[in-house]
Design a protein around this nucleic acid. Structure first.
Lengths: 189, 189
DNA sequence: GTCTATAAACAGATAGAC
DNA sequence: GTCTATCTGTTTATAGAC
């Protein structure tokens, strides 16, 4: 892997583990096995390197999610597969965690890929939900757009609860709970 | 307000705005209008001051939530009132944001109040949901424990989506969506 | 209790040799 | 392209005067 590639990958890891504010150029260089001169030769500075790293992480996440949604199965099966796929729950979401970084949110260029990731994700899930509703797999009264935000929020909030507890249990519960509601366990009354 | 109080309050604000890693003792002192000597006289250091601030924020949040849950009304009304009460959505949750701080999570003393806050919150919501189910207000098949985690996750994830978008819209959608599911809009099929 | 002085280590670069 | 040297400011304190 080229030095430039190693710098980007190291930055991706550190942004995930420690966030933007908590990541120093020095730490990036050490993890990449590159000197200072190298880093400043390939990138203008920390924000520039972070932008490359964030863009790549966002794109990877988008592609990964699309795999689940374009797979065969009912709407509920696809949403379920997406929520329950293998995840590094205790590490949290590499994109979602950036929303807690004041310097990322303050920089339009850095925030844009984060914003875009969630806009697309919510939109794609809304499509799947609308499809399921129209096919009669889901309730006729279901609001696809609002519910899509709910699904993504359960995921992002599940990470928060798991990290607080240092256990995947609350994440699993949150996912189980929303899938139960979607499946209409609330029907019997 | 005493100097000690001002230091704690300034720390609470800064932890909310910038997190633990992003908050320096100097910034705390400046906002509190206190000198370095003052801060180190009242507190052993940054972790000690942060502990006092986090404990207070956690306790305040717990008390605030309890107000909604002990109010009169059906289970759904109380959950709805809790989710829709006035919130500083774009600032996010002052407790939830700490889960993204590697140094807070690494320090058992600092993580404990965060963990405790969500354990209690999930437990209290599970009680309200169980009550609603037993009274026939909610579906008989509803899982109170799992659904309580879902409700809290929607809140925490809603903050994440709102910050990414710099708009309260996705937060409102996520809340609307989960309330619709709880209310059984999924019933008609 | 509060203030100023001092300090070692780190953050985030820039400059120029190789 | 990579390396070392240098630099300004910040971080997180400690020491001691007032």
């Amino acid at each position: 892997m080229s030095t430039s590639e190693r710098l980007i990958e190291s930055t991706r890891e550190l942004l995930w583990e420690r966030g933007y504010v908590g990541t120093s150029p020095k730490a990036i260089q050490q993890r990449a096995g590159a000197g200072q001169g190298s880093m400043y030769h390939h990138f203008a500075g920390k924000p520039d390197l972070a932008l490359a790293a964030i863009r790549r992480t966002a794109e990877e996440m988008r592609a990964r999610a699309e795999e689940q949604f374009s797979a065969p199965g009912t709407a509920l099966e696809r949403i379920s597969a997406y929520l329950q796929r293998e995840r590094d729950v205790l590490k949290g979401c590499p994109v979602g965690r950036l929303t807690q970084d004041p310097e990322v949110m303050a920089d339009e260029a850095l925030r844009a890929p984060v914003d875009d990731t969630f806009i697309r994700l919510r939109g794609r899930i809304a499509e799947v939900l609308a499809e399921g509703r129209d096919r009669g797999e889901l309730a006729a009264g279901l609001d696809p757009v609002a519910t899509a935000s709910t699904v993504v929020a359960v995921l992002q909030g599940g990470y928060v609860l798991a990290r607080a507890a240092q256990s995947t249990e609350p994440f699993q519960q949150a996912v189980t709970g929303v899938l139960g509601l979607l499946a209409g366990h609330a029907t019997a009354r």
